[in-house]
Nucleic acid binder design. Structure first.
Lengths: 123, 123
DNA sequence: CTGAATCCAAGCAGATACTG
DNA sequence: CAGTATCTGCTTGGATTCAG
């Protein structure tokens, strides 16, 4: 903490929105949950994240690596071995994600029900 | 709680992913923060959510309404008055959003720094 | 004021083929 | 095994126009 720290009392939604991009891509969360258990190889992720294409998995991992949430380890074997693991920064995001996850488990049925009602009332 | 409720001990990332869609659209969070303060008229939202187009605002509000997070009140005045407010379900999502927001405030600089490092190391 | 409808350009994602 | 490269269809979002 430095004395010049600016305490933002008001919300900073734009900032927040950008941060959401960190976790809001289609495959990011799925990969995250896999890596939360333990570090995994590319092929393991490919196998375990159902429906992900090779392109999307690579793209997702690159983005997570770029954001400093995931670290990539290359071992000069033949054939190549590449492992991915969460960084400390990545691990720090797990609990916030869990909170959202809990909201899901508690309320997602309500959302689905609301949609049903809405769709019947409209087209 | 009914006795046949299935308690899912394992993670349900797919379910979670769907729920994230609730809050991950570009404008959703911005609108949400506006409505958190108090209910607002369409034109107020349009003015306060910087950069949003009429199409996107309407689309966002429709989706939130459909998900049961926002309620729409139409008053038969001339010209028309339409107000939007968070529902109880919507309000229940605020705290989880705040948690993510706090993570942002605490760590987003680290993400930006990581990106800088990554981009310099690569192209 | 609060939208709906349409057109269009840009970006995203799937499929496929190729490589160290 | 772990990717890169390319092509292509689809979705998304901005701009514009019209309407109750």
């Amino acid at each position: 903490m430095n004395e010049f720290e600016i305490v933002v009392e008001t919300e900073s939604p734009c900032h927040y929105r950008r941060a959401l991009e960190v976790v809001s891509s289609k495959w990011t969360v799925l990969v995250f949950y896999e890596l939360e258990e333990e570090k995994k190889r590319y092929s393991d992720l490919k196998r375990r994240v159902e429906g992900v294409t090779q392109k999307m998995l690579t793209q997702t991992l690159r983005q997570l690596e770029r954001d400093g949430l995931v670290e990539r380890f290359v071992y000069p074997t033949v054939p190549p071995t590449v492992e991915y693991a969460l960084t400390e920064l990545g691990k720090s995001l797990i609990e916030p994600m869990r909170v959202l996850h809990r909201w899901t488990d508690a309320h997602y049925d309500s959302v689905l029900e609301a949609r049903k009602v809405f769709d019947q009332a409209n087209g």
